[in-house]
Nucleic acid binder design. Structure first.
Lengths: 328, 328
DNA sequence: GTGAAAGCGCTAACAC
DNA sequence: GTGTTAGCGCTTTCAC
C-alpha cells in the first residue's frame, strides 16, 4: 500500500497537500489534479488506521444486536446501513446472542476501535453503557430503551399488543393467550401489558393470568409455550405472539397438531418472515424495523455531528394487517 | 481513555513493559502484577487503531456477503463468528446487495483498515480480488468460487440439484421444473445442471428446457418464476427451488393459487427458514451454512497464521430430508 | 528482564 | 494556498 508521502513525492507537493486533497480542503486545481493522478498511479488508498489514530475517531458505526438470525434485526441493519453508507460511514454488525458478557465485549471493542458511535438493541435492561458514554461516544438505543439518558427509537409496544388482541376479540375469540419474550426485556413486558389490558377490558378480568407465557424471543420458545398452553386444562382459542419468531413457533406447533387459523386465532406482533401461509389467515401488527434502523442512524449521525441537545425518544407507528378469514 | 504511558507511570515501569504485559511477552511477575492493577485502576484498554497502525494488521475479519437478509448467510455468519471469536478476532459483516460496486468498496475498506483477512461470498463471477490479494491479505471464498486461486468452501451444488430432482422423480412427478438464481452465479448454474441431468436421464430428453428459469435468489423471484411456469402452455407438476428464498417464493405463489404440496411437488435446495408448513410436505436438500462458516473461518485463520500452501477447496456434504407425504 | 527511542501513516497547527 | 513539523498510542528493535 502506497502512503501519502509517496504520492506527495510523485506529485511534487507536500504530504499535507495530499491530505488536503483527500479531505476536501482548498488546494489549487493544478496541484489537486497532480495529486489525484499520482494517487491513481500508485493505487493509493488512505490508511484508515492512521487516520483513526490521528483523528481519534473512525468513520464506523457499531450496530449491536441480540440475534443476527432474526430477520427483524437484519431488516433494521439494512436501514442503518443505508443511512450510514450515504454519509460515508461503515457499519459493523455485532451479535451478542442476548448475552451481557458478549455485549460488553463488543462495546469495549467499539471504544477501543474509536468507532464514531453505537446503535444498541440492548441484551437486557441490565446492559451497561458507562464506559462507552464516558469515552464520549454517542449511543442510540433501538427497539428497547436502556437505563441511560440516550436517544432511543422504539415501537409503541403496548399499543401493538393491545391492537393484536383487539383484532382477535373482534374476530370473536374468547380465550386469548399471549406468548411473549423474556420478562427482562422491556418490549416483551409492554406487549404483554397491551394484551392484558385489552383482555381485561373487552373480555373478563378473570380471562388473563394463566394465559400469559414469558418465553424466549425465539422459534423454539413459541413452540414450547404453545404446546404448554394447549395441553393446559382450559386451552386458549387464540394466541397473541410477541414477536416474529414466536409467531413462527406458534404456527409450527399448531400445524403439527393439525390446527390452522382460523380454527384457532393467531395475531403476531412484528411480521411473519418468509411465511408460506396465506397472509389473510393471521393478523399481523407490522413493525417497521427498517424505518427503525434509518431513524436511529439519523439520530446517531446528528450526535456524531456534534448535536448535544437533550436525549430524544422517537416512537414509531405500526401497521395493522388484519386476518380477513375469520372463524366467525 | 487511558494510554499505555499513564499505566506505565502509575505502575512505575516503562511503556514497553506495559505493552509486553498485554502481549504475553516475558515480564517479571512483580511488574506484571503492578501493571495489571494500574491498568484496572485506569480502566485501560489498548487502543486498537494505534496497535493496528503499528502492526499493520487488525484482528478483524471481513465477511462480505450478498444479502444480509438471507438466513442462509446469517447462519453462515454465526459459524464464522464462533470460530473467529474463539481466536480473538472480531468479524465485520459487509452487505453487498450482490452489487459489484458495493463489494469493491468493502474490499477496499478491508484493505484500508488493515483487516487480517476476508471471507467472501462473491457478488458474481466478475468479482475482483486483485487489490486485496496484492495487499497480501488472505481471502477465502465461500458458497461460490471466484476466478482467483484462493481457498474455497462450497457445497456440491450439482449433486444437491440432482438429489432434489431425483426425490421428486421417485415421488412420481413427471414434469419437473427448476427455478434457480442468476446465471452469473456459479451455484445457480450448478444446481440447474444437477436438475437437468437428472430430468434427462430419468424422464425424457425433451422434458427439460422450457422448464428452467434463471431468476434472482430472492422471494419475489420465486413467486414470479412460479407464476410464469404455471401460466405457461404445459405447466409443471413439480418444482425444484434453487435456494431457500426461492423456495419460499414458490410456496407463496402456489398457496396464493390454492395449490399445496403434494398436489404439486416441491423440493428446495437449502432450507425453509421459519416455515410454518408441515416439514414432511416438502423435500429439503439441507445445506449446512453454519458449517460452511466455521470451515471458512478456520481456513482463513490458518492463512493469517502464515500457512502458504496451495489453495484448497473444501466441498461440504448436504443432507436429504425427503417429503414423506407424496401425491402417489 | 527492562527502558529509550524510533516510527507505523495520517492530520492539523503553525508559519510563510 | 502550501510546506514543515509534531504527535495520535502503540510495538519493537536495540542497548544494557
Amino acid at each position: 500500500m502506497a502512503t501519502i508521502y509517496e504520492v506527495a513525492k510523485l506529485a511534487g507537493v507536500s504530504p499535507a497537500t495530499v491530505s488536503r486533497v483527500f479531505n476536501g480542503a482548498s488546494v489549487s486545481e493544478a496541484k489537486a489534479k497532480a495529486v489525484r493522478s499520482a494517487a491513481t498511479a500508485l493505487r493509493f488508498t488512505p490508511n484508515r488506521a492512521a487516520r483513526t489514530l490521528r483523528k481519534q475517531s473512525a468513520e464506523v458505526i457499531a450496530l449491536v444486536i441480540p440475534d443476527i438470525e432474526n430477520p427483524y434485526f437484519t431488516e433494521m441493519a439494512r436501514g442503518v446501513e443505508d443511512v450510514a453508507q450515504a454519509a460515508g460511514y461503515s457499519v459493523v454488525l455485532c451479535n451478542t446472542d442476548a448475552e451481557l458478557a458478549k455485549e460488553r465485549t463488543y462495546l469495549e471493542i467499539a471504544l477501543a476501535e474509536n468507532m464514531a458511535g453505537v446503535i444498541l438493541a440492548a441484551a437486557s435492561s441490565a446492559s451497561r453503557l458507562d464506559e462507552v458514554l464516558a469515552g464520549g461516544r454517542p449511543v442510540v438505543a433501538v427497539d428497547r430503551r436502556t437505563g441511560y439518558d440516550v436517544d432511543s427509537v422504539v415501537m409503541d409496544n403496548r399499543s401493538a399488543g393491545a391492537e393484536a388482541t383487539a383484532q382477535l376479540v373482534a374476530a370473536g375469540y374468547q380465550r386469548i393467550a399471549c406468548i411473549t419474550g423474556p420478562e427482562s426485556i422491556e418490549t416483551a413486558r409492554e406487549r404483554a401489558d397491551g394484551w392484558r389490558s385489552t383482555v381485561q377490558r373487552e373480555l373478563s378480568e378473570a380471562e388473563s393470568e394463566g394465559l400469559l407465557r414469558f418465553s424466549t424471543f425465539r422459534v423454539d420458545g413459541g413452540r414450547d409455550a404453545t404446546a404448554d398452553l394447549l395441553e393446559g386444562p382450559e386451552p386458549p382459542d387464540a394466541i397473541v405472539a410477541g414477536n416474529n419468531l414466536l409467531g413462527v413457533g406458534v404456527l409450527q406447533e399448531l400445524s403439527g397438531r393439525g390446527l390452522t387459523p382460523p380454527q384457532i386465532g393467531v395475531a403476531v406482533v412484528g411480521s411473519l418472515p418468509f411465511t408460506t401461509l396465506s397472509p389473510n389467515l393471521v393478523t399481523i401488527i407490522r413493525l417497521n424495523a427498517r424505518q427503525m434502523g434509518t431513524t436511529a442512524a439519523q439520530l446517531l449521525l446528528d450526535r456524531i455531528g456534534g448535536d448535544a441537545g437533550a436525549a430524544r425518544t422517537v416512537v414509531l407507528p405500526h401497521e395493522v394487517l388484519p386476518a380477513t378469514v375469520t372463524a366467525g
